[in-house]
Structures are given as structure tokens and as C-alpha cells.
Design a protein around this nucleic acid. Structure first.
Lengths: 311, 311
DNA sequence: GCGGATATTGGGAACGTTCCCACGGGAACG
DNA sequence: CGTTCCCGTGGGAACGTTCCCAATATCCGC
């Protein structure tokens, strides 16, 4: 085709506002080149960074990302997933899904699915998770390395990864020979939960010298309780969070925490889905990523104090 | 049709994993019942709440929401919008778009479009904005009402709404008879910008007794600078932000700020789009919503000090 | 200049729905 | 019992693409 007529056609298309109809194309090609992403909660900045990774990895491979959300409501999540399936997304990533296993399994029979931030034990579904157990171990090792022995945990309750984190805490305490200093306060990953947990810890008979809150949000709550008790961080009490959210990075807070490779999580999930789209036979896997310690200003060496002769 | 055969058909469909093909339906019905939402930046929690409103209003009217993002990159934003148009979304909401006016105008010839959080002056496009001018007036009136006269502003630079906020500040200062106390430091809506701005203000010859940062993020930066200077909030300096983000609500920060009705903004935008989908003739409008003062713990009455005889 | 091979063009068919119309059967009424 | 109406059923046509194949044009070699 001559360059001239080519240009003429393009100009005419522009003029008329022509735009290829993705629906018709998807119908005949039997692929949409869209990867659906169902995000349980767009308020959670965690998923925003995962989305960055998903987006970049998809673009690199010639796919586009289409997002729906369930607004933290399992029923709405199911509708959001259904919407993606009806649109014939070539693959689906479920981020933080609270969906029943059966729903996910049924969907997985139709398209490749990857799970992020929630860990249903399902075959035929890729799962990408941060090694929360290992992250908690890093936290305890950091605090123990600073000389702390009374290291308390504020738990995350039913939250995603909370169980792994408390398991990791317990294991690391044991390995550090601090088994009898293990102390776990209930919590729920919220600021209020962290505040209450820290209050109980500080009012207890044996005040911990370090508090490990199992996410940043609850660490900020704990920070409040510590200040209210007239104690300083980190001189009197060391404090750690988990997740390395923007909150932790705030100069005003500057929280020592554990970083999850969020972007990388997204990249891995997208790679997994695209691989299974393009190689329908290949098996789904479980991908575990390593967390990282981020030292900021809320942890410090335990001041050496006069000790009993046992030394 | 008999209930029995009806049930049999549904069972068979389930069995075979049948799912209506939205692409085919959209093709023949010439509508998709999807409203596309292009969000410039999913890291900004502001838009998450707008999305809540969009989502709820859409669901109420039988539409589904489909989200794409431009990751703060105008080129990617354009592709994201294009993706929605190719998918034949029945309408589009642009949230925080940094798109050239010409692109938006061209798109608006194809489908009803509503703009949120960015204010291109375009006919044929609905715009929903918070009255930032009025919000700034509320802030200044609050501070002046507490007896403050040296009220400084940390500006938002090129950020969305920054100009309206500084205009409102100026106007309110004038109306309060404080024109000669007007002082505006440059800023950029970031924590760092707020920090630097506050430092300059505090080191200046005439230290302000109140600082109005034009968003919460920069207010938190200012908070750091104030603490570093050995001053207390609110005893020595009153501080205000704007936006009422989660940051401001944090117990540890508890920032007096201006609330934008984010959810309501989403609802209005979706209503506008759906109205224009269903009544193709109806004109696009500009919708202005009223902000609200949220008093927390960073503002206090100016302590009365000995004054010159002028009284 | 002709045959064969290769590029270029044009014309269906198909994708999975919805919508409309024609047809047939059954019920109700005269 | 026949006619009319209504409901239900079934069979295309259409939506806007892509893909494939056939037909035609172009080119090269002999």
C-alpha cells in the first residue's frame, strides 16, 4: 500500500473518530489481551504498589490491565471477578481476595489465575507471597541484636500474613534463647488495636524494652500509647512495624520496619499469569519472595544497665 | 417455560461453565453497561474514596465500573483512556487526569465524560470539584477566629486546586483585615516541600503563629520542621492541613484540616455520566461541592500577650 | 510473449449474543 | 366446531472484527 493512501486512510479514520472495537476483536480472536485484576481494597496502598508491578509486567508482554474492586465485600468481590470473566479477560490476578476457595477454583477452570496477598491452598492457581515468617524472624533478630530480651509482639489477628508473622516471632525468640520472654498481645492490624495492645504491655508488671507490631498501622497506634505513657522512642522503648508503608517512611514517624517487595510481587504474579496464558499446559506454582529489614529511628541499642551477678 | 426445565438448563450451564460473553452482548446491544474510570494515580488515597462513591452510584443504576490507571504518566493515561474507549465503555470518568485538553475533547465526542480532581475548562464535559477557594476561606476564618493574625500559607505549586486555595487564603486574609500579614511560601504538596516551607517561615524575622499548609502531606512535613525548631503544636504554633486524609486522622498527628466530600464527588460524577448516557441531549455541567472544617488538635487559641497601648 | 510463481485485493465466514419476525399450537369465545 | 387472539418457539439477521481462501494483478525467467 502506498504511503500516501495509507496516510489518507488514517486521516479519514481520525476525521470520523474511528476506533477499533475491542469487543468485536475479542470475539473473533478469542482473546482480549486484557488481564483482569480484582483488588479487594483500593484504600490499601499496599495494592497500589503491587498494581505498579502488575501493570509494568503486563505492558512489557503486550497485555493491558483492567481493574475491578470488591470494596472489601466478598459478595462484591465475586461480582467483580465475574465481570472480568464475562469480559473474557485472558487471565486474572486476585489481590487480597476474601473469596471462598470454591469460587476461585471454579474460575481457575476458565482462565489462568494468580493470587496475591491471600493464600488459599489451591492447586491450579499461582500464588505469590512474601515470606512473612522470615520477615518476623528478621525483626526479632534485629531487636535481639541490639541487646533486647523483653521483645513483645502485637498480633495481627485474622489479617493476611498475621499467623506467619507470629509464628516467625515465636521461632526466632526460641532460636535466640528468649523463649521465656515471649509475650503476644492480641491486635487486629489497626491503629486502635496497636494502641490498646501497647497500653496493656506498658501497664503490665514487666515492661518490654522492645515492641514488634505486626504491621505499620498498629505500630503507629503503639507509638501513641508509648508517648502517652511518658516514654520516649527509641530511648525507653524500641518499636518496629511491618510492611514499610508510606506511613513508616514519614519523617515524623520514621519507623524501623520490614519491607515487602510489593512491586516485585506484582511482577511475579503477572509473569505467572502470562506464562500460563501462553503455555496452557504449564503448572501453577507458589512463589515466595524475601522480605527486607529497613532500619530507621525507632529502634536503638538497649542501654546497658547494672545486672545481677549471674552474668 | 417450566420451572423444572429451567432448573435443568441452569444446571447444565453451570456444569459446562457457561458464562455470557460480554463482548458479544456489547456488540449487538451497542452498550456495555460498563463505565470506565481512568485514575491517574492509585497511590493517592483521595481517589480511592472517590471510587467508592463512583462504584456505589454506578451499581445503583445498573452499571459496572471498570478501572484503568495512568500511573501518573500522561502518555500512559492516554493509553488507559483509549483502552476504555476501545472496550466501548458507555461513559468515562477521568480522575485526576493530566491529559491534554484536546485528547479529552476528542474523547468527549464519543462518550459522556466527567472530570474529577482536575479542572480543564471544556464544554461538553461534566466537571465535579470541591470548592477549594471556600475551603481555604474556612481555614483562615478558623485560625483568625482563634485570634491569630500572622497566618502563613505553604503553597501547593502546580498541584490540583493549589491555585484556588491560595486565592481563597488571600481573599480571606483581606476580609479579616489581615492583608499586611499575608505571607506565602512556595511548596509542592509533598512532605519535603512542607518541611522546607515551614523551616523558612520559622527562621524568618517575624515568625507566624499559625501555618496553613495547602494539603495534609505538606502539613506533616511542616510538623516535623516545627518540632525540630523546638516549638510545640499547638501551644507555640497552630497548624492546618487540607484534604482530611487518613494521615490527618492518625491519633499521633491529629491534624486540623479541611474535608473534601470525596465520596460525594464520586457519586456526583457518576450521576452526571449516567444521566448523559441515558439522556443523550442533556448538557454537561460544572458541579461544585462544599468543603468542611475538621477541628482536631493542631490548632489552638492564640495566648493573649502583652500588647502595645494601641490595643 | 508466455507460463509459473509470487504479491495484492476482495469477498465471505465465523465469533456469541440479542432482537425481531414468522410460524404453530392452544385457549377462549362466538 | 370454527375463528380469533395470544403465547411460546424457532429461525434468521445483525453487531464489527479477523482470517482465510480465491481471484486477480504483477513480476520474473525462459
Amino acid at each position: 500500500m502506498s504511503p500516501a493512501s495509507r496516510a489518507a486512510v488514517i486521516a479519514a479514520a481520525e476525521e470520523l473518530g474511528y476506533r477499533a472495537n475491542a469487543a468485536a476483536r475479542s470475539l473473533v480472536q478469542r482473546r482480549s489481551y486484557n488481564i483482569g485484576v480484582m483488588v479487594s481494597d483500593l484504600h490499601n496502598i499496599f495494592f497500589a504498589e503491587v498494581l505498579d508491578g502488575l501493570y509494568a509486567a503486563a505492558a512489557e508482554r503486550g497485555y493491558r490491565t483492567l481493574i475491578t474492586t470488591g470494596n472489601r465485600d466478598p459478595l462484591a468481590e465475586e461480582r467483580a471477578l465475574e465481570q472480568l470473566l464475562e469480559l473474557r479477560a485472558d487471565g486474572v490476578v486476585l489481590a487480597g481476595a476474601r473469596l471462598p476457595a470454591e469460587v476461585v477454583r471454579a474460575a481457575a477452570r476458565t482462565v489462568p489465575i494468580a493470587l496475591v496477598g491471600s493464600d488459599l491452598q489451591l492447586r491450579g492457581v499461582d500464588v505469590v507471597v512474601d515470606d512473612d515468617f522470615q520477615g518476623a524472624v528478621l525483626a526479632v533478630e534485629h531487636l535481639a541484636g541490639l541487646g533486647h530480651r523483653d521483645i513483645a509482639l502485637i498480633d495481627g489477628g485474622q489479617g493476611a500474613g498475621a499467623k506467619e508473622r507470629s509464628d516467625g516471632y515465636r521461632a526466632a525468640m526460641r532460636d535466640a534463647g528468649l523463649l521465656r520472654h515471649v509475650r503476644i498481645e492480641p491486635g487486629d492490624f489497626t491503629e486502635g488495636g496497636g494502641y490498646e495492645g501497647a497500653r496493656r504491655l506498658l501497664n503490665g508488671s514487666r515492661r518490654p524494652t522492645a515492641i514488634f507490631a505486626s504491621n505499620d498501622q498498629s505500630a503507629v497506634g503503639a507509638l501513641d500509647a508509648i508517648n502517652e505513657a511518658g516514654l520516649r522512642v527509641p530511648q525507653d522503648v524500641s518499636l518496629m512495624g511491618y510492611d514499610n508503608t508510606a506511613l513508616a517512611a514519614l519523617g515524623h514517624i520514621s519507623l524501623t520496619t520490614i519491607h515487602q517487595p510489593r512491586n516485585q510481587i506484582g511482577v511475579m504474579a503477572m509473569k505467572a499469569v502470562v506464562r500460563r496464558i501462553e503455555h496452557p499446559g504449564s503448572p501453577a506454582r507458589r512463589h515466595v519472595l524475601a522480605p527486607k529489614l529497613i532500619v530507621r529511628d525507632t529502634t536503638a541499642r538497649l542501654p546497658s544497665r547494672p545486672r545481677p551477678a549471674s552474668r
